[in-house]
Design a protein around this nucleic acid. Sequence first.
DNA 1: ATTGCACATTAGAATCATTCCAAATTTAGA
DNA 2: TCTAAATTTGGAATGATTCTAATGTGCAAT
Lengths: 147, 147
Amino acid sequence: MENKLTDCDHRHNPKLKGLRMTRQRCAVYQVLMAHRDHPTAGEVYDRAKHSMPTISLATVYNCLEALVQHGAVRQVNFERESSRYCPNLTEHGHFHDEKSGTIIDVPLKKGIHLSDLLELPAGAQIDNLEITLRGKIIHQPSLTTHP
Amino acid sequence: MENKLTDCDHRHNPKLKGLRMTRQRCAVYQVLMAHRDHPTAGEVYDRAKHSMPTISLATVYNCLEALVQHGAVRQVNFERESSRYCPNLTEHGHFHDEKSGTIIDVPLKKGIHLSDLLELPAGAQIDNLEITLRGKIIHQPSLTTHP
DNA sequence: ATTGCACATTAGAATCATTCCAAATTTAGA
DNA sequence: TCTAAATTTGGAATGATTCTAATGTGCAAT
Ligand SMILES: [Mn+2]
Ligand SMILES: [Mn+2]
Ligand SMILES: [Zn+2]
Ligand SMILES: [Zn+2]
């Protein structure tokens, strides 16, 4: 995937409106948008160095924090592992496949209300919800037959 | 709440069956059962020292790990904060009240299936589910009137 | 009740993701 | 262009957790 300069241009990307844009933030943002997976800060650092060999790890942490605060990307945590960063802004949880180590986005079904699922505390105003799943992908024998 | 010696006795507590019981594991387990809140390892350490002043922090970590592996307590993580430990073995999520810092158990409603809520990946076998909420408790003005 | 040994405890050192620091640089609006 | 405020940077600091290796103990089998 090419680096589109407009990715980091406020005029074309409303998600970044109001966030002061630096070369470094642009590079970090493009790293996340390019693969749409869930890299750690260290992995973002490695990828960002391709287009900007002088960027520092501290800056990658700073940029990721700015993007998260701004709501342009999400931070994802599994147990006590390194934080990961997610470019998918739709409501979703995360499935960690223990076999492959992959993290898979798990969309919430439409029209589901939290109060349908949980006995929420009275007066609770929910600012943030995180749903995390761990397990294995079992290969189902295909039901279709090969003639 | 009193320390009941039988808390850590395999004959009276099936949750600990098969787990080799030491004075330290008993003390740590009793700490968790006594308050039924969500202390960090450091907080468990401080409390355990009341009944066993010589216990070490490394041992508290070891005991907590053993109890978690055994399924006798649960480990709970919020973002990158210190792990917390939970004695409630029923299916529930956790609400972190940003005002008070308290963590409140949030029971799952009966008869809810994950597949009702999430578009699970095909063939996913879920070994672990974590639901984490962050927010504030808003005090509702009471609807009852005082004469 | 004794014994043997696999497993547990302990203090302290090591790890390592993340945050902090303070000096140099850059952004973006006036 | 000029300036103030924000950002970047390399390196040091932090802090929760894990590791190490010496010592101690639970408990099943005798
Ligand atoms: Mn993994
Ligand atoms: Mn808090
Ligand atoms: Zn995601
Ligand atoms: Zn709980």
